[in-house]
């Protein structure tokens, strides 16, 4: 998504939430319009997520923040939980919500047990895992597996797999047989080459190398 003009507002994913960072030069109308478009496109992805507004580059007026907050809530049920005004000045909007320190969040997530799916994922199935995801069966075309960490498929991957969905670029996708319709790791998307490919004897792994998703046989 690189172009000469920067995006009016950037949506960055961290381990447990999204950060909205408006561009310094963008007008408020532009920001709202672009954000609405993105929410429309990926409504399910953002649905009921928690977001932070980072205003260190571009300040917004109070009524503008309220308008943004209302729009987020109405469009995709997104909760605006924090507003970051400067490097060390963070405004928490959600009083009852106690935020553990970042390190604590990480360790808690690591303890999260992998989700195990004991059947073939057929077309129309969506599996979302808060940690690793293990599928004991195939993932057929039209099915989607999304995991915060690694995805391991003991079968053929023919559908879509999204590892590291919250931005973990070290996440990997393992499959006994790799014929995906699309691979996603963190914010990268890869399409398989068109035409047939040689059938490897062993399982394959997809991971990010040199800023690209690559499928390798170990």
């Amino acid at each position: 998504m690189k172009s000469d003009t920067p995006l009016p507002i950037q949506i960055k994913a961290t381990r447990d939430r999204f950060i909205l960072a408006p561009d310094a030069k963008a007008s408020f109308a532009e920001i709202i319009r672009y954000l609405e478009k993105r929410l429309q496109e990926s409504k399910d992805f953002f649905y009921h997520s928690e977001m932070c507004l980072d205003l260190s580059n571009r300040p917004l007026a109070t009524d503008q923040i309220q308008q943004l907050q209302k729009m987020l809530a109405e469009r995709a049920g997104v909760k605006l939980i924090e507003i970051k005004i400067g490097e060390d000045l963070v405004y928490s909007l959600d009083r009852g919500h106690e935020r553990p320190r970042a390190a604590a969040v990480v360790s808690q997530k690591q303890d999260c047990a992998p989700m195990i799916v004991r059947s073939t994922c057929r077309s129309g199935t969506l599996v979302e895992s808060p940690a690793d995801c293990v599928v004991l069966g195939d993932v057929n075309p039209g099915a989607e597996v999304v995991a915060v960490k690694d995805i391991i498929i003991f079968g053929s991957l023919r559908g879509v797999a999204h590892a590291g969905a919250t931005g973990d670029r070290l996440a990997r996708i393992w499959a006994l047989n790799m014929e995906p319709s699309q691979l996603r790791i963190a914010d990268l998307v890869a399409l398989p080459p068109r035409g047939g490919k040689p059938i490897p004897k062993r399982f394959e792994v997809a991971e990010i190398r040199d800023n690209m998703i690559q499928v390798i046989t170990l």
């Binding site: 059947s119 057929r122 077309s123 057929n140 075309p141 039209g142």
Partner: peptide, 12 residues
């Protein structure tokens, strides 16, 4: 086949 797959999933 794609639709059949979806239907089998729904039946299951």
């Amino acid at each position: 086949i794609r639709d059949a797959d979806r239907v089998i999933g729904l039946l299951e």
